[in-house]
Design a binder for these strands. Structure first.
Lengths: 341, 341
DNA sequence: CTGTTAGCGCATTCAC
DNA sequence: GTGAATGCGCTAACAG
């Protein structure tokens, strides 16, 4: 391993000079800078982060916390995509990205504690948001920089987060359905304890209200992201005496399941029933018909969160921010006009 | 920040004793251990990794390299799942996991160099395998510990990797089709420069050969993982004068697209045509019909690779290993018996 | 069984 | 503009 001393010896200057060259200290003569840099390249010098961090107190690393991996939601293509977004800026800023999952909430908390106490990272990005989350609490108490992707449950105004305007998104997409003549519109969402779901649903309701449409309780169902649980719910929805002619679904992944079920029951999308959803994950292009969905710019969600976090870590007094990533409707083939009989 | 000294002072012992307690050195009396540990807990001591690593030369961290993120393949649910597997063992072993993506090959190489030269990590897991990969080459030259998930392109016997027996998997699943009476079986695979694809295809061919079935060139097509490129290919396959009655598809994700296309063309799976694929990603349960697929145990692939890597980093002389994770067929509804006319 | 000493690689005073 | 000295927090000899 080639150290600062080695290159000091090689160039005949002192270690501190080399250190200053690395930091690009303006008080070093251009000549020696050039000389030193040449030697660094020639000998293949690379700074040792541990030594550097030990003294500098900054790790140039951020931690990314995934939801507990017991959570099937992890399978959502959402995550690789945020990770990509985060990675793009950490890379550009020469930051390092530490990933932490954990099967249970306790495991996650333990990892987070280790990371902050052991000074592994300068800040954290939470890829989930839960009520009474011990991790969030811990971070807040220690005043450790963090940002949430999504909507915080508590202290919203004091915690910087990057999110979509899910209410508006829900409203817009529902309005699109209404414009197409639909009047009986259902909503299928994931677990109700997620803000995303709730917000999107509120938007859906608001659109119905504004259009003077009936807001039927029976039209709103909540089901697990994946798997069978939802089957019965959807079936009962279709068995209603006046079944919906269109459905707003809170996540592309759920749409996939619903789509299959529908076709299974002999209902064709969009001929017999229309479908819209959210996220614009690659899946939504592959399905037949391709899904009309809201693009929430997942990549950008990640990139912006990383940017905000890094800002926060370099300037501890950076105020809490709320960053809203714009969304837009991607029109594809899962919606058709409804002609009232 | 509470250091070793603080707790030394608090308990009236020397810093080294505290250090020894941390390392659980057997030559420390149970009494002082207890005393010291109590103080650590009380004062909230947590070791500073940077200090520790600076002297100990081991980072207790591993790097995980994703394929270049330009690659759409990153969207494959395969990745979150391997990550989960890796995370489970890093967590258990108190290791840390650093993630690195990068848009281009050069970016990735740069990150890897930074990681090894800056002694960020003790070893790396590569989640891809490519011909003439500069990263692999670099790691090999520097004799830096790494393991590949998948099959290495060069020096197979000298590089430890964890993989499935994709040849057998391809053979078995094809045999299943043959047992069901199918004689005209096609193969749809991803890019041909991936070993996974090739191996699975070879297995498919071997099964045909053994059964004395014709191995038609026109029955084998290769298409991008996602998107439209494949549409025409599949359509031409169906337009053949004797179209296949069953298709082996190299990845669940591709199956999803093919499935939609098929239903689109009015062909019902499995009534009109049977489908089998690989990976057993959660998607394969959701589709209608649910896919008969090969479970390759992605989670285990990740976990074993992490285990192997950690072993290798603690014992540098650990010989190169090849770890084969068993697969098994998951029978679902995308296959039906073929009754020859 | 425990304390003392030294040093890991680097950034940063303080001198000159 | 540059060098010498100091210390970050910890582990690892070497003593005793």
């Amino acid at each position: 391993m080639v150290t600062i001393k080695d290159i000091a010896k090689a160039t005949g200057v002192s270690p501190s000079t080399v250190s200053r060259v690395i930091a690009d200290n303006p008080r070093i003569s251009p000549d020696t800078k050039k000389k030193v840099r040449k030697a660094m390249k020639k000998l293949g010098y690379h700074p040792n982060i541990h030594a550097r961090n030990l003294v500098a107190k900054s790790t140039k690393a951020i931690g990314v916390i995934l939801p507990s991996s017991a959570d099937k939601a992890l399978q959502n293509p959402f995550f690789p995509e945020v990770l990509r977004g985060i990675g793009s800026v950490t890379h550009k800023e020469q930051y390092t990205m530490m990933l932490s999952s954990g099967q249970t909430e306790e495991e996650i908390l333990a990892e987070v504690e280790r990371m902050v106490y052991g000074s592994y990272v300068d800040g954290m990005i939470l890829l989930y948001s839960r009520m009474n989350d011990p991790v969030t609490q811990f971070l807040r108490e220690r005043e450790f920089p963090f940002v949430i992707v999504g909507k915080p449950y508590e202290n919203i105004s004091e915690t910087t987060h990057v999110d979509n305007d899910n209410f508006s998104a829900g409203k817009e997409i529902t309005e699109h359905l209404i414009e197409q003549g639909h009047k009986k519109i259902a909503f299928i969402g994931g677990a109700r304890d997620l803000f995303v779901t709730v917000d999107r649903e509120e938007g859906y309701k608001a659109a119905l209200d504004e259009a003077g449409l009936e807001n039927k309780e029976a039209y709103q169902i909540h089901t697990e992201f994946l798997k069978s649980g939802g089957r019965e719910a959807v079936e009962s929805l279709l068995a209603l005496e006046t079944p919906p002619t269109a459905i707003v679904i809170s996540d592309d992944l759920i749409s996939l399941g619903v789509l299959s079920m529908l076709e299974d029951s002999g209902l064709h999308v969009p001929k017999d029933i229309s479908l819209v959803s959210f996220n614009n994950v690659y899946l939504s292009e592959i399905t037949r018909p391709a899904l009309t969905t809201i693009d929430i710019q997942i990549y950008e969600l990640g990139a912006q969160s990383a940017k905000a976090l890094i800002e926060k870590t370099v300037n501890k007094k950076e105020p809490a921010k709320r960053i809203i990533i714009p969304h837009n409707v991607i029109y594809r083939e899962s919606v058709s006009e409804y002609k009232s009989e």
